[in-house]
């Protein structure tokens, strides 16, 4: 195992009773600072893949290593592992009964027992970076979708994760708000944050990714540099998938 590899996944399998496999023999690894985008038709298992890495779904087989440590073996450790793997959800999942500041400070104070004063400062800085300084004392319902998603990103960042998982974070947003959220992600990428991103925004994927993974029917079908994947995908399935985004090809 190479020293740089932060996340390594071997033969990951996932199946529900009586259903065909949701994930089939996934082998995958990421280096520190790398941004990997997962593409694929809906139902291909890409969200489940992310949820498995964050231990939100029990897996049926295989190994997941974070910094060389097997994270599937000790279930008691799940809290420590999740602190190192941040996740941002499609529907934001901010806690509606807390202000934005309370939302982003809850876990650092409660789970990591960090110093309150420093945490407030850190939260202020991060919220300012994503343009939410004014919204610290607002409740989630008072924010637009884009603002909520930016706050949710800050909430994940506050834990100082080693890897960030983004699960279709713009899918619930109105088109005009997509950009402000993706801008934040691009900046994170520039700062060297390791990210695994599931998205349907092709232009964004091309811009942010160091590497693209294409999944279909629960398996990784193709793995390429973005410029290669978008210009000349190797597999037919990837070609067909990409063609769906070109309306002129419909004729």
């Amino acid at each position: 195992m190479k020293e740089k590899q932060i996340l390594q996944i071997e033969h990951l399998e996932k199946s529900y009773d009586g259903h065909p496999s949701v994930l089939r023999d996934i082998n995958f690894s990421m280096e520190k600072g790398e941004v990997v985008v997962v593409l694929g038709p809906s139902g291909c298992g890409k969200s489940t893949f992310l949820r498995c890495i964050n231990l939100l779904e029990p897996v049926s087989g295989g190994r997941i290593y974070l910094n060389g440590q097997d994270i599937l073996s000790g279930q008691k450790e799940s809290s420590r592992i999740r602190q190192e793997i941040g996740m941002v959800f499609q529907n934001y999942e901010l806690f509606p009964h807390m202000t934005i500041l309370e939302n982003v400070m809850l876990a650092p104070l409660l789970v990591q027992k960090r110093d309150r004063k420093q945490t407030v400062e850190e939260a202020g800085e991060l919220l300012a970076r994503v343009g939410l300084s004014e919204k610290q004392t607002s409740y989630p319902r008072q924010l637009s979708g884009g603002q909520k998603q930016r706050a949710a990103i800050v909430r994940a960042l506050m834990m100082r994760p080693k890897v960030l998982l983004l699960d279709e974070i713009t899918a619930a947003l109105d088109p005009e708000m997509v950009r402000e959220v993706l801008q934040v992600v691009l900046e994170l990428a520039r700062d060297g944050m390791t990210m695994l991103i599931v998205t349907h925004e092709m232009e964004f994927a091309r811009a942010v990714a160091d590497r693209v993974i294409f999944m279909d029917k629960g398996a990784i079908v193709e793995e390429q540099k973005p410029e290669d994947f978008f210009s000349c995908p190797k597999t037919d399935r990837a070609k067909r998938f990409l063609n769906m985004f070109h309306y002129e090809a419909l004729g």
């Binding site: 602190q83 959800f89 999942e93 789970v111 990591q112």
Partner: peptide, 13 residues
């Protein structure tokens, strides 16, 4: 349910 998952994903018990 996803609210609980969001909490878990932050490392909360």
């Amino acid at each position: 349910v996803s609210q609980g998952e969001a909490g878990l994903s932050l490392g909360m018990s």
